[in-house]
Design a protein around this nucleic acid. Structure first.
Length: 514
RNA sequence: GUCAGAGUAGCUCAGCUGGUUAGAGCACAGGAUUCAUAACCCUGAGGUCGGGAGUUCAAGUCUCCCCUCUGACACCA
């Protein structure tokens, strides 16, 4: 089975920020999980590079738009590399192949009779670059954001006849598996219920855009172009650009993961465009929440933006991934709190999980010849920890496809806590001092080591680096093609050597605030 | 303004169709322990469940009113 997931194509107006990093990390976890489940995964990310805003930003920096895009795009690509993102496709909308695709798509939509020439008239705010909803008869309306008078505009645009898809879209958004999380579903339904209006897909005075074939002077509106980037990405396998090939290239997407701000484009406009072009619609659109920092919106004006490059450099990928995925319900808004970040990373990763491995491995090595102790009865699937582990595996496997990263992470942590509890209960260190206890101590240590192995395996999609270190410390490694089997209890073999333990996760201490 | 959602321990949140002393994690306090990354384990304190009224034998959970916050209300990537 093939599984296609996408991040948004990030707008290269500015350097990457934590929000896009967050989305991408979440997708990465999901992509890794699906690969381990042996899906044929295509993980798409990339950048959206057209539009007037970019044109202007480039001008301000005295760069050509293309140069500007090249620079920012490579920052994204580099950043994803540094974070260890496992994307399969990184698409750029300035790629010539993308133009080919957009033209093909446009021709299909046009052939469906869904392109009409119309007038875009209304009150326009130059600073916002958008039409306002003020009534046409308004005397002298002004923009509530910029407090400047609105200008009356009257320009020719091409329109997509969205209105024709009213009932089809209504049906689509009424499905309970299309828009997630459920809390955002109603919003979109209400919007659709108000009646869909045609929307413009071309501009006449934006030169930094893709030219519309049969309308000189027109360029495609950025959104029309950007969404199609998903298709371009899927076709980027060395073969020809052809919409006819999409079915064998992973379309429709299993899920588009996006920020809640662009839910409508993905849940309403985009499916209608697909229908018009005779393509299946995406299976799911997941709109996640936004991150604030210490309760405040992150922004340049507040000077409180958290730079992902800095965060990665100072804290490492495991720490940040864990915090974002384990502490924030994916879908809800989340608040980045430095103290909590440190607390969770140190408690969960260093103390609970890391130290569990360290202490258990130390005991095993000390008393059982630097290796895994004899399993005895502990290899049985009805050992309490075996039962708990099986439960955890089930929870993770159920949670991950639903993007419930928090549920998955918490249950893995609970498994480690249970193992620590088991050590406390059985106290191998004191029983080793009594005669004739070796065999039963060995069983307890085996069970805990085995639990740790499963913790390490379950962390693979969420924290690939830490997962690798945990497994290595157990003398194991991830088998990407055999994950499900590896998750079965009792696969650690008694007598196999355990390397000398070193902390797999350092406690995080910050000399200065982030 | 209209619509939707939310206001529960210091913080982040669970609490389904109303039913014994309102839960978890973090933070905090105390204890236990020494295998381990001053880690782990146990216990405890802490809440008039936004405010008010009502329905009911019984309401955090239903109804009404009020207060506060968030989001949507079309082309902002």
């Amino acid at each position: 089975m093939s599984y296609t997931l996408t991040t948004p194509l990030y707008y290269v107006n500015d350097r990457p920020h934590l929000g896009s990093t967050y989305t991408t990390l979440a997708c990465d976890a999901l992509a890794r999980f699906e690969r381990l489940r042996l899906q044929k995964v295509t993980f798409v990310t990339g950048v959206d590079e057209h539009g007037q805003k970019i044109q202007r930003t480039a001008e301000r920096q005295q760069l050509s738009p293309q140069d500007h895009c090249d620079r920012v795009s490579s920052r994204y690509r580099d950043l994803w590399n540094q974070w260890g993102i496992s994307d399969d496709r990184f698409v750029r909308t300035t790629n010539p192949r993308h133009l080919e695709l957009v033209v093909q798509f446009y021709e299909r939509v046009k052939a469906s009779g869904d392109i009409v020439v119309g007038k875009q008239t209304g009150w326009y705010c130059v600073d916002c670059e958008e039409y306002k909803d003020d009534p046409a008869e308004a005397e002298s309306p002004s923009c509530s954001i910029h407090r400047k008078p609105l200008e009356w505009r009257d320009e020719e645009n091409l329109f997509f006849r969205l209105s024709r898809y009213q009932s089809a879209i209504e049906e689509l958004v009424a499905r309970d598996d299309f828009i997630a999380p459920a809390s955002r579903r109603q919003e979109v339904r209400n919007f659709v219920a108000q009646g869909l209006r045609d929307f413009s897909i071309s501009r006449v005075n934006v030169s930094w855009g893709l030219p519309v074939p049969d309308h000189p002077g027109h360029t495609f509106y950025v959104w029309f172009d950007a969404l199609l980037g998903y298709l371009t990405a899927l076709l980027d396998d060395g073969e020809a650009v052809s919409l006819d090939r999409l079915a064998s290239c992973g379309w429709p997407a299993s899920v588009h993961v996006i920020g809640k701000d662009i839910l409508r484009f993905h849940a309403v406009f985009w499916p209608a465009m697909c229908m018009s072009a005779g393509l299946p619609v995406p299976q799911k659109v997941f709109g996640h929440g936004f991150l604030t920092r210490e309760g405040q919106k992150m922004g340049k004006s507040l000077g409180n933006v958290l730079d992902p490059e800095l965060l990665l450099e100072r804290c490492g990928t495991d720490a940040v991934r864990w915090y974002l995925l384990r502490d924030i319900q994916f879908g809800d808004d989340g608040d980045f709190q430095q103290q909590r970040f440190l607390d969770l990373v140190n408690n969960d990763l260093a103390n609970t999980i890391g130290n569990l491995l360290n202490r258990t491995s130390s005991m095993a090595r000390k008393w059982f010849d630097d290796g895994v102790p004899p399993a005895g009865k502990a290899s049985s699937a009805d050992h309490p920890l075996a039962i708990k582990a099986a439960e955890t595996v089930r929870t993770v496997i159920e949670a991950m496809p639903q993007l419930a990263f928090k549920t998955a992470a918490e249950s893995i942590l609970q498994l480690a806590i249970a193992a620590n509890g088991h050590l406390s209960d059985t106290a191998p260190w004191s029983r080793m001092k009594e005669p004739g206890q070796e065999a039963s101590v060995a069983e307890d240590l085996f069970a805990v080591l085995e639990t740790t192995r499963i913790v390490g395996l379950l962390l693979a999609p969420l924290l690939p680096e830490l997962s690798g270190r945990i497994l290595a410390q157990l003398g194991q490694s991830l088998d990407p093609n055999n994950w499900s089997n590896q998750l079965n209890w009792g696969r650690l073999s008694s007598g196999s050597p355990l390397p000398k333990p070193t902390p797999v996760m350092q406690r995080l201490e910050l000399d200065e605030p982030l």
